Amino acid sequence: MNDISPQIKDITDSFVSSGRRLSIGHVEIITRQEEAYQSIYSATCIENFNPITVDELRKNPDFPTDNSGENRELKGKNSKNQDIHILMIPVTSDDNSSVICVFQSTAPFDKEKLPFLQFFAAMIDITGKYSIKDASTIRGSDRYKKDLINMRDMQAKLFPKFNVVRGFQIGSAFLPAELMSGNFIDGFYLDENIYQVVVCDVSGYDAASTFAGAAIRTLIRSEASKKMTPSVLIETITMKLKNIIAVVHALIYISVFQFNIKTGKTMISSYGPLMTLFYNKKKNGYANLGTTEVGRLLAKRIFYKDLSLMMEPGDILLYYSNGMINASNETGKEQYGESNLYASFMKQKESSSTDLVHTLIESLNDYTNYSPLEADVILIAIKREAQA
């Protein structure tokens, strides 16, 4: 990776915007060939940030002198005598050479930032290895698939464990169409009573799209302490990441669900169509929230509004991605569609959230006869059990 390819430049340029929002002042990619170090990319994320140069970093007693392949955290002072935290993440490493991502910040690198920065390094690795003219040959190789599977494992570790949500059952499924994807599901408490579920569906499958998904997830996590409503959160994220969104040549869909585990009060918003059904147990019927007045406004991507509803015991919210309803049958002539989804959903409405999701996936597989998916399938079922 002696030169920065256009694909890597897309990712690194996108990082500048997200890095600034995460209080990361400087990012640099350096190569090590025996004892010689060379900077092949550097960018300042925060205006007037004064980074420590590579030559100065090498004087730090904790600076790595071998290719151990392990992350290394250092602390030093810049030319203004400011304390600077440095995180070095190896991209590639062998006996004689290595490529390293170097991040600098005035604040320590906390647990929320670290997975994102590791993922960034993995993206640089994958893109650097395979952004070449004979990519079609390389991408069919076992080595390429193994590298991508390892990267997907990193993504999977970021997915939430929904069994911690009191008074609610949450079942989910994620079926990837390709090994490289920016889609994610996340869930966490905003406080002791409010739980938030976020779904991001990025329609592209290139490196920039994958990185965009990771950046969105990290920024949403970093904004959690502000306890924004879903619409305010989405507006904040899209404004802060407008440079990343501009780079990604794909549509991005974001849906946010916040529900009070004690009262059942729920607020929902989306960036793009609101792909969600709401089943009301008392009325024994469902509504497609995307067809409501608020849902139609959200689909235009220029309005930021919340849809509020009260979830009673037995009520269900079902999020489904475009990949679910657009999946084709074996002949490729007909799509699974919303009608099949609705019918399967209503048959299993009394099931647990996990069983409901599994049944819907089985219904999809029966329809497609396990044909390859054209887009990722994401399903999330949120069912209120009883008073928490």
Rank of each mutant, 00 (worst) to 15 (best):
T31F: 05
T331K: 12
Y271C: 01
T229S: 15
S209R: 03
K157G: 02
N243C: 10
S339C: 14
N365K: 14
Q169V: 11
I252D: 03
E223N: 05
N96Y: 13
A386K: 14
K226L: 14
K9G: 01
I380P: 02
V202L: 15
K240W: 05
Y286I: 13
G290E: 04
Q196W: 07
A287Y: 06
L190V: 12
A388Q: 06
P51I: 12
K226H: 08
A246M: 09
I24K: 06
S181K: 09
S79D: 10
Y271K: 01
M154Y: 00
T236C: 11
I185L: 15
R21I: 11
S68K: 04
K242A: 06
D147H: 10
G140M: 10
S68C: 06
Q258T: 13
N78V: 08
A215D: 05
S5M: 07
L148G: 00
K59M: 03
D66T: 14
L341Q: 01
F211V: 05
V294F: 01
P176E: 08
A121P: 02
T354F: 05
I46P: 04
H85N: 11
S97M: 14
S203M: 06
G337K: 12
D110M: 09
L57W: 01
G337Q: 12
K333A: 15
P230I: 02
N67A: 04
F15Q: 04
L297P: 05
R296Q: 14
S136F: 13
Y319E: 07
S5I: 07
E338K: 09
R384A: 08
R72F: 02
K226Q: 11
Y41A: 11
H26Y: 15
N288C: 05
D366Q: 11
L117I: 14
E312R: 03
Y144V: 09
T218R: 03
A208C: 10
F103E: 00
I138S: 11
N260I: 06
F63K: 04
Y279S: 02
C101M: 14
